[in-house]
Design a binder for these strands. Structure first.
Lengths: 319, 319
DNA sequence: TCAAAAGTGTTATCCTTACACCCATGT
DNA sequence: ACATGGGTGTAAGGATAACACTTTTGA
């Protein structure tokens, strides 16, 4: 008896930043019957030798976006349960990818024709945006909801384990908020039935009263959460942030981009010192056209760091 | 036209430690015609819902080893090129896993019957063992070999790029050795044709004069290198090292285990301070039976840290 | 002249690293 | 008594985090 065969699909979380908005490319958005989802493409081993060439090829052909950095995230083997009622149960394995790119106003029209669009990513994960301080919905909706979930199993050991997980993921009581625990937080909300996907999958009986963030198809929001977590970690030890920046930029723009990704506010002087200490950038000599204050000097990424200081990133401090 | 289907295989790097030896479980070892390989099993989506249950199930059924920590490493989509001459070209995707376990003398007989065995992992990656200082084969074989490879493409930009990669991976000139760059190093040796697998795959024409480390089947050594890299990184921020320890252990045994994994020698006092500062262990009150010196106090893992200090690991310092 | 954003200088604190010595047991 | 490994105290240096103020432009 030989092993069954399955189909392989690729899902990409394609990320860009404009201004202070971190963006994620979604398809089937806007008025369509289907909910937003990540771009998806079948992997055809006859045509493409590797996943990465396949992904690059199909995304670039369909959207004309040039993908910079690409990284494999995770492979999910339990997608069978996500089949729609009418469909036959074909086995589907999906490989998740993170890709970084740049975008400008020009792209938007072309993407719309494809039924795709870049959207602010905190629309899907609103509790992850701490740039203006602790989001209110954490105390107003999430923690009360999780607290009910903790009590569902009484007050014994299982309840204590749930409390510990909540504390860890959301930094209740003494623990600090850790912006990298994006996936743990999403999974907790899923298990507690606080995101609508949990009801659709049949994980819980009822849809949540207040929907936490906009839903995505299948487990796409989970893949997206994995991507955010990975990227937030990555910028700390690899200079991938520059894949999201235009060639020339001001230090404030760089800081704004890092803040958009990491979801927290950074201390200006310390951020600049960090960038300087790591020799990540060099001045172009030009000045930015003023945007309402003193004009800022322009910088560019020092490509040499890739050879010099391989693990140069932006270990973000507090505040 | 619909996407082709493929078969999914699971490859596991199953790791244990006894004394000062880091071990990897290999199959088809010892006198068999085939070379050593990682345990492999087809994934049958009809029987197992997830990769992890499938892996756990088949390994535990075949070897009677209890797998502790399990982590997905990477999914390789380009295995088609590894087909044997006679075989039909069936498309095969392989998902690599890292698993940690404990082993004792008792296991060994049972494993032998299965055609499997735990082997010291530096047999496959000898350049990774820096516990007794910089391995001689780096200066005697590897760097001269890589130097030839750099010069293969003249002295232009491409040669400079190769030099930069070597410098980064092996810490030549000023750069320090980074024990986590296991995969980069293996890939460099492969590209330069210094490991025998490169000749077998047809990547280079000739087998290397001196074989660097024992080979494995297909790309198993590459998967293994990925596992070592991941584990070396992981122990720094998650207390997974205890998955490799018996329930009670001395601090020296703990240090020896960390040294076995990380491949470098650690500073005793600082290591102890680190363990204490992170409150990773608590004394059992018992003493170890002396092994030739003063008897050591026994400790056990403080499971509570998993809830208290989620990211408690052993950020290894120098020495 | 005032608002808005750019840009800089300094200090306290903690963590990392290195150093050298004493202790308890078996032979 | 000595060899073997177990176990600790402390000080220097560097990295991190927090502090507040000056500069340059446009309106």
């Amino acid at each position: 008896m030989t092993a069954e065969t399955v189909e392989i699909g690729l899902n990409a979380a394609i990320v860009a930043v404009t201004g202070a908005s971190p963006l994620i490319l979604v398809v089937g958005a806007e008025g369509a019957l289907q909910r937003d989802g990540l771009p998806f493409g079948p992997f055809d081993p006859g045509r493409h030798r590797t996943f990465e060439t396949s992904l690059r090829d199909s995304v670039e052909r369909q959207t004309a976006l040039a993908l910079g950095y690409i990284e494999q995230l995770y492979t999910f083997g339990d997608r069978g349960r996500h089949r729609l009622p009418g469909e036959r149960a074909k086995h589907m394995v999906s490989v998740g990818y993170l890709a970084l790119t740049r975008t400008d106003a020009e792209d938007s029209g072309r993407l719309t024709e494809q039924g795709a669009a870049f959207r602010d990513w905190y629309r899907y994960l609103p509790w992850e945006d701490w740039r203006q301080g602790r989001p209110k919905l954490i105390d107003e909706i999430i923690l009360p909801g999780l607290s009910r979930w903790e009590k569902e199993v009484g007050t014994g050991e299982r309840a204590a384990a749930r409390t510990a997980r909540v504390r860890l993921a959301f930094g209740t009581s003494d623990l600090p908020w850790d912006e990298e625990r994006v996936l743990e937080r999403y999974e907790l909300l899923y298990e507690a039935g606080l995101v609508a996907e949990a009801a659709e999958d049949g994980h819980v009986a009822e849809r949540p009263e207040v929907a936490l963030g906009q839903t995505m198809r299948h487990d796409h929001r989970r893949i997206f959460a994995t991507a955010v977590a990975r990227l937030r970690g990555k910028i700390k030890y690899r200079p991938v942030i520059f894949e999201l920046m235009p060639p020339d930029f001001t230090l404030t723009a760089l800081q704004t981009t890092v803040e958009a990704i990491s979801g927290r506010h950074l201390h200006k002087q310390n951020f600049r010192r960090l960038v300087e200490a790591n020799q990540l950038v060099e001045p172009t000599g030009e000045m930015a056209v003023a945007t309402g204050g003193r004009p800022a000097a322009l910088f560019r990424f020092r490509r040499q760091v890739l050879a010099e200081r391989p693990s140069a990133g932006l270990k973000l401090g507090g505040r």
